[in-house]
Write a protein that binds this DNA or RNA. Structure first.
Lengths: 350, 350
DNA sequence: CTGAAAGCGCTTACAG
DNA sequence: CTGAAAGCGCTTACAG
C-alpha cells in the first residue's frame, strides 16, 4: 500500500471526523450532519456525537471543509494604509458582525501599491476569500471591472464599498453624505464670521474629497463668497497638513479658517500655525474630519466631523453577507455624520 | 453516477490543474511538479506546462494545496489593540518578510478580551494558521502552556514574541532592552537637573513596564534620588495619560518631569499640564515612548524613545519562519532603541 | 434517520 | 523524467 500520508508535526495526531465517528459508533456522514444540520439527526445520536467530540477533543479541519464547500469564510478588508487610526474602529465593527456569522477578516493593507491591491483581489478567484469590503478608491479600476465581468450580474459580485467610492462604478456603498458634512462645516465657519475660508483636501481626484470640495464651493457660493475659494491638496497625513498649512498661512492674504479633510492634516496645520505665531482659534480657525482619538487631545482640541465608524463597519459587513447569500442589497446606505465643536474654531477676529 | 459537485458561482468554472494537464498533454502530477519542483521536469515539458497555465488562466486552489500539505501559509499577528498606531509599522515589517516567503498575515485584534486570544490560538490546532507572532502579554498563559505541551520541545512550537514578553515563560523574543531604554531617559532628565521625576507606566504587571520601572528605580538610585520615586499607572491611552497626569500634577509637590510608557499617554499628560497652566518644558518635562508619527506634531514636540519597529517586525517573522522549517532560533534578539530629544524636555526651572 | 461512496483540487511515494 | 493512484478531511446526493 502506498504511504502518501503527510507526517503531522504533533505526536498524538489531531483527531479527525473519523475518530469521532468511531467513538460515537456511527458514520462520518452522521457526525458531519450532527454538526452542520443537527435537526436531521436523532436526539440520541446527536447526544452521542457531541460526547464523542468532547471525548476525543475534535475540532473540524476548516481547510477541508472550505475546500469541499468551495468557500473560505474569509472576508478581505482592503485599506489604503493601516497606520491611519481612522480605520481601526471600522474594522472592529466589521469583526463583530463577521465573527458572529462565522467569518474571519483578513486585513489587506495596500500601502498605496496597486500590486498589493491586485494580490488581494486574486484571493477571490483562488477561493481564499469570499468577499471584499473596499475602503479605498486608490486601486486600479480594472480589478473591479474584471471581477465584475465574471459575475452573472452586478449585484452578485461580493464586493461592498465603505466610506470611499468610485465616481464611475456603481457598487453597494455604506458611507456618510460627504457633500452635506462639508456644507455643515463651512456653514458653521461662515456663521462665525469667516469669509476667507480655505480647504485642504485629500489626494486630487479622490471622489469623497471631490464631494467635500463641492460642498465647500456650494456653501461659499450660497453666501456670496465664491471668489474666496482657496484649495490646497494634501494626502491626509500630518506631514502634508503641516506643509500645506505653511504654504496657505505664510501669506499676507492668508485665510482665517481652514477646513481639512482629515484630523491628522488639521493637526499638521496647527503645527504650521504655531511655527508662524498664528494663534488658534484667535487668528485662525481649523476644522478636521473623522474625529479620531487624537482630536480631543491636541492643542487646541479639534472641531471636527464625526463619522459613525463602528456602524459603517457593521453595515458594510452585513451587506456583504447578504450579497454572499445571494440576496439583494441596498445600493446606497447613508449614515449620518455630525459636527463636533471644540476649541479650534472661534469668531473671526478684527 | 453520483453528482456531489458543488455548483460554482462563476459561470465559466475556475480552471483546475486538470485543465492545465489536458491543455499541456501531460498528467496532473507533472503539472504539479512543474510548479513545485521545476527542476524535476524536463525543459520541454516545463515550457508546455507554463504555456498551458497561461492559456487556460490557471491559478492554484490554495485551500486544496494547504489541505494536502497540512499547512495554511498563514501567520497570526496577535495584538492587544489594533487602534494603537505603534503596531502598524511592525506589521509592515512582518508583511514584507512573510509575503516574500509565500505567507500571509492574519491580524488578530484581541481587544483585551481573552476569548478572542483563545479563538486565534485555536487556529493553530485546526490548521488554519501555521504560527503566531505574539505582540501582547495580555493573554491567558494557559494558552501557551497547552500549546507548548503539544509540541515535542519548546523550540518546536511556532510562536515568537515581539516587543512584549512573559516573565515566567521562555519564548523566542525580539525586542529592545526596555531597562536600558528607561535608564537612558531618566539619565537624560537627571542631566537636565530634574530630581522629582515621576513615571507613568502601562498596566500593572506588564513585564515590559516592570523592566522600564526597574530602569527608572535603578537610575534614580544611582543618582541618590531613590526617595523621589513616584509611580502612576495608566493603560497606554490618551485618556489615562490625561487622568493620571492631572493626579500627578495637581499637587504642590508635583514632579518636574514625567517619563511615560507611551507617546499617547505623554500627549495626555501635555493636555493635563495645559489645563493646570503648567508650561512644558518650562515647568514640566515630558518624555514619551515609541516615537509614533504624532510625536513630531503635538505641542510641544515630544522627546521620546524610538524603537526600530519595522526591523522588529522583520526579525520576528524571520525567526518564526526558521521555527517553521524546524531550525533552531536565537532565543533573544535585542535591537537597539534610542532617545530622540525634541522640545518637551528642558532644564529644570528655578 | 443513517451509511456507503464520490468528490472538492491538490501532492507525492512508488514504479517504471 | 513521467503517470497512475492514493489520500488530505471534509460534505452531501442518493438509496435505504
Amino acid at each position: 500500500m502506498l504511504n502518501t500520508q503527510v507526517t503531522s508535526k504533533q505526536s498524538p495526531s489531531v483527531p479527525t471526523i473519523k475518530d469521532v465517528a468511531k467513538a460515537a459508533g456511527c458514520s462520518t456522514a452522521t457526525v458531519s450532519r450532527a454538526l452542520a444540520t443537527p435537526e436531521k439527526v436523532s436526539d440520541a445520536t446527536r447526544e452521542r456525537v457531541n460526547q464523542a467530540i468532547a471525548q476525543v477533543g475534535y475540532a473540524p479541519n476548516i481547510a477541508a471543509r472550505n475546500l469541499r464547500r468551495a468557500e473560505s469564510k474569509t472576508i478581505v478588508a482592503l485599506l489604503p494604509d493601516i497606520s491611519n487610526p481612522f480605520f481601526s474602529e471600522i474594522i472592529s465593527g466589521m469583526e463583530d458582525v463577521a465573527h458572529q456569522a462565522g467569518y474571519q477578516i483578513l486585513i489587506g493593507d495596500c500601502e498605496h501599491d496597486p500590486a498589493r491591491a491586485e494580490a488581494y483581489f486574486r484571493l477571490l478567484s483562488t477561493n481564499q476569500a469570499d468577499g471584499i469590503v473596499l475602503l479605498t478608491s486608490e486601486i486600479p479600476k480594472t480589478l473591479i471591472k474584471q471581477a465584475d465581468g465574471q459575475a452573472d450580474g452586478q449585484a452578485d459580485f461580493p464586493l461592498v464599498m465603505a466610506c470611499e467610492f468610485f465616481s464611475d462604478i456603481d457598487l453597494p456603498l455604506i458611507a456618510i453624505d460627504n457633500h452635506q458634512a462639508s456644507c455643515q462645516a463651512i456653514d458653521y465657519l461662515v456663521s462665525l464670521g469667516h469669509q476667507r475660508i480655505a480647504t485642504l483636501t485629500g489626494p486630487a481626484g479622490n471622489p469623497i474629497c471631490l464631494e467635500r470640495l463641492r460642498g465647500y464651493r456650494d456653501t461659499l457660493s450660497v453666501h456670496g463668497l465664491i471668489d474666496q475659494v482657496c484649495v490646497a491638496e494634501g494626502d491626509f497625513s500630518f506631514r502634508s497638513g503641516f506643509q500645506q498649512g505653511l504654504a496657505l498661512l505664510d501669506n499676507a492674504q492668508r485665510p482665517t479658517a481652514i477646513f481639512c479633510h482629515s484630523d491628522e492634516m488639521a493637526v499638521g496645520v496647527l503645527k504650521a500655525a504655531r511655527q508662524l505665531d498664528i494663534t488658534v482659534p484667535g487668528q485662525l480657525s481649523v476644522v478636521g474630519f473623522d474625529n479620531i482619538g487624537l482630536s480631543e487631545y491636541c492643542d487646541p482640541e479639534l472641531t471636527t466631523i464625526s463619522q459613525p465608524r463602528n456602524e459603517i463597519g457593521q453595515q458594510a459587513m452585513q451587506s456583504l453577507l447578504h450579497l454572499l447569500r445571494g440576496e439583494r442589497v441596498i445600493r446606497r446606505q447613508t449614515l449620518s455624520s455630525h459636527l463636533i465643536v471644540r476649541k479650534s474654531t472661534g469668531r473671526v477676529s478684527g
